[in-house]
Design a protein around this nucleic acid. Structure first.
Lengths: 239, 239
DNA sequence: CGCTAAGCTAGAATCAGCTTTCATTACCTA
DNA sequence: TAGGTAATGAAAGCTGATTCTAGCTTAGCG
C-alpha cells in the first residue's frame, strides 16, 4: 500500500514514537488502533457502491466551486452527496484522502483534455511553456483546487500521499512528452526543474504574493533559461 | 504592516465573506473580535520584556530539537520558557507567528554563519550550488525546522507572512551574491529557479519521497542546467 | 513612600471540526 | 427467507489552539 518512504536518508520524523511529551506531561503512548479497517479498494466495489463513491467525490468537487476546502466540512460533503457522514468515512480514510481523490478526479479529466488538443509551439521551450501555462490556467479557473493541492502537499495520510504521487507522475509524463529529441536524463532534469518552478509559482499566486501575470512570466522565463541551454548539449540543435 | 497581497489578479479567497455555509447549516457569522490587540513590536519593549520574548523563542527552538512542531503545544513552549500561556500570546499572535519568529531567529544565525566563511567554487554554478547545498545541510541537521518551513509556507497569518517574506528576501540576497558578472535580470531569474528547486526538494525530502542524496544531486543538476546556459548569454564566457 | 495601570500567572472555559460510535434499518445473496 | 454486510442518523469523543478570569507583582510617578 504505502509506496515511497523507502529511500535512503529519510529524515527522522520525530513523531512516530510517542516517546515523551515536551512539558511535564507524562502521558501514555496513546496509540489506539489507528484505523480499524482501511477503505475498500474501488475495484472491489459493486456498481451501486462505485456510484455512491463517485457521487461523494463529485459532491466534494462541486462544493469546491464556491468554497475553500477548509470551509467545507465532511458533513457538508455527505449532505451534498445525499449520504450519511459515516458512509463518507467508509470510502475515504480522512478528509485529506477524500480531497486527494477529488483532485485526482479533476486532474484526470484535465489530462485527457490536454492530450486532446495538440501542444502549441515548434520548439521544446515553446511546448513546455505551453503545457505549464495550460496547467496554470486550469488552476486559475478554479483556485480552490490549487489550495487543495498546496494543503495536500504536506499531508501525512498515506492514502493521500499515494494518490498524490500518482498524480505527480502523470503530470511529469505529460511534461516529458512535450520535449522531443532530448536525452532522457536531460529531459528528466528539465522537467524536474519545471515542476519545481510551477509549484512555487502556484503557491505564491494562491498565497497572494505574486500576480498571475508574473506567474506566467516567470514560468516562461524559467523554461527559456533552462531549455535553451539543454538543447545545445546534444548534437541536434533546434532552430 | 502587511506587505504583499497588493498585486494584480489575486485569486478569490472565497473565505473572506461568511456568506453561506454549504450544507443546510444556517449558522450565524460568529465574528467575535478576531484579535483585540496585536502583539507589541519588539522595539517598544523593555529590556526585561525583550529577554522574556527571546526566552520564548529559544524555548520553541529548543523544543524543535526533539519534537515536530505539530507535537509541540503552546503550553509546552510556555512551560519550557518558564512563562504563562497567556504571556506567549501577548508576544505572538498565534502559534504560526511564534514559529515564524523561531525560524527567523535560527535563520539569522545561519546567514551570518554562511557569510563568515567564503563560498567554495570558481564558477557561478559551483558557488550557487555550494550555497544551496549549505542551506540544505542546515535543514538536514534539524529536520523539524524544515517541517516548520513547509507548514508556514501556507500560513494565512499576516505576521507569519511578513516574517516569512523577509526571510525569503534574505535568502534570495545571499543566493544572488553568489552569482557574479551576470546581468541583474538573468541573475534574478536564475535565483528564482534555484529557489523553486530548493523548495520542492526540501519538501520531497521531508515528506520522505526523496532521499537526501537525490536531493543534493537534483539541486546540483538544476543549477548546472540553468547556469551554464545563462553564462553564455553575456559576452563573458566561463571556462 | 504609597498608588495605579500594565504585565504576569495559573487555570479553567471556549470552540471548531474531524472522527468514531452505536443502535437501527435497508439491501443483497445463497 | 435467514444471515451478513452496508447505510443511516444522531450523538458523543477528542485534540489543541485561543480566550477569559481573578488574583499577584512590579515599575514608574507624584
Amino acid at each position: 500500500m504505502q509506496s515511497s518512504r523507502a529511500q535512503t536518508g529519510v529524515p527522522p520524523t520525530g513523531n512516530v514514537a510517542g516517546v515523551d511529551r515536551p512539558g511535564g506531561n507524562d502521558s501514555v503512548p496513546k496509540r489506539s488502533t489507528p484505523k480499524v479497517s482501511a477503505p475498500p479498494l474501488p475495484e472491489t466495489l459493486s456498481a451501486a457502491q462505485l456510484a455512491r463513491r463517485e457521487r461523494i467525490i463529485e459532491a466534494g468537487l462541486s462544493l469546491l466551486r464556491s468554497h475553500d476546502h477548509t470551509q467545507i466540512q465532511m458533513k457538508d460533503v455527505a449532505g451534498e452527496a445525499g449520504v450519511a457522514l459515516g458512509t463518507v468515512y467508509r470510502y475515504f480514510q480522512s478528509k485529506d484522502h477524500l480531497f486527494a481523490e477529488v483532485l485526482a478526479h479533476w486532474a484526470s479529466q484535465l489530462v485527457t483534455n490536454v492530450e486532446r488538443r495538440p501542444l502549441r509551439g515548434s520548439t521544446n521551450a515553446e511546448r513546455l511553456t505551453d503545457v505549464l501555462h495550460r496547467s496554470m490556467r486550469a488552476f486559475q479557473s478554479w483556485p480552490q483546487l490549487a489550495r487543495v493541492v498546496l494543503s495536500l502537499e504536506t499531508s501525512e495520510d498515506p492514502f493521500t500521499r499515494e494518490i498524490f504521487a500518482r498524480n505527480m507522475a502523470r503530470n511529469t509524463k505529460v511534461y516529458v512528452e512535450s520535449l522531443q529529441g532530448l536525452p532522457d536524463e536531460v529531459a528528466k532534469d528539465v522537467v524536474s526543474v519545471a515542476t519545481s518552478v510551477f509549484d512555487l509559482q502556484l503557491r505564491q499566486w494562491v498565497m497572494g504574493s505574486q500576480s498571475i501575470a508574473d506567474v506566467y512570466d516567470r514560468i516562461a522565463r524559467a523554461v527559456w533559461v533552462v531549455l535553451e541551454f539543454s538543447e545545445r548539449l546534444p548534437a541536434t540543435s533546434v532552430a
